[in-house]
Design a protein around this nucleic acid. Structure first.
Lengths: 103, 103
DNA sequence: TTTCTAATATCGTATATCCGATACAAAAGT
DNA sequence: ACTTTTGTATCGGATATACGATATTAGAAA
């Protein structure tokens, strides 16, 4: 996934953020993104990201007993997220005020 | 540029934001992004974006007399930026607190 | 005027989203 | 058992960043 948060790696960033708060499945993630941006990302968008994130060791499956695979962050993933968050804030530091106007 | 702010259209968003505050050239933009994320985007990244944005009628050249082409937002561009900002805030609304920690 | 430099522009290539379509697997309902 | 639903997964194709390399152009400097 390159360096995450270069300029196009925001879906990975969002997924990492979501999973950091609560173990989530692909479907959970699709639903949450739908809430935020209005449209539900297609399976072909989300699952490949999950796969890549998993291959990179940033997330892993939670022990489960159903058809839903829940993922959680690994410690490597936590570090990655912290780094990506820092970068994100540096790039968008001046969005702080906008949030007041729009949210 | 699709719908701007789908998930990958953030460079366009950033460029639109920068230009909205002050007329800027490609070089100005490259410098500003360098300040924010550390590395200076290559010409091959920035100029095609400027071209696309211009073709879409979101930005236009300022009358000038130098080799630097300064751009400013059109009214269409202002509308686009407002819309994109709203979407951005909806997707990243929970980043508000993070900014306190990192900036 | 010629040379140098800085800014613009294009090219080829790579990767990360994106989508819709399709396939598959497992739980749930009948 | 069979069907339906739901979540997972992959595929082919598209587009927006990304880069380094190269080309062009227009001031600036010599």
């Amino acid at each position: 996934m390159g360096s995450c948060c270069d300029m196009r790696g925001f879906l990975s960033f969002i997924v990492l953020r979501l999973i950091s708060r609560k173990s989530m499945s692909g479907e959970d993630i699709r639903e949450e993104i739908k809430k935020r941006r209005g449209t539900k990302p297609s399976p072909g968008t989300v699952y490949p990201v999950l796969k890549t994130l998993s291959e990179n060791g940033f997330i892993k499956e939670v022990e489960y007993a159903g058809k839903e695979k829940k993922y959680k962050l690994t410690s490597k993933g936590k570090k990655e997220l912290a780094m990506a968050t820092r970068k994100f804030c540096m790039i968008f530091y001046d969005m702080k005020e906008e949030f007041g106007r729009f949210c």
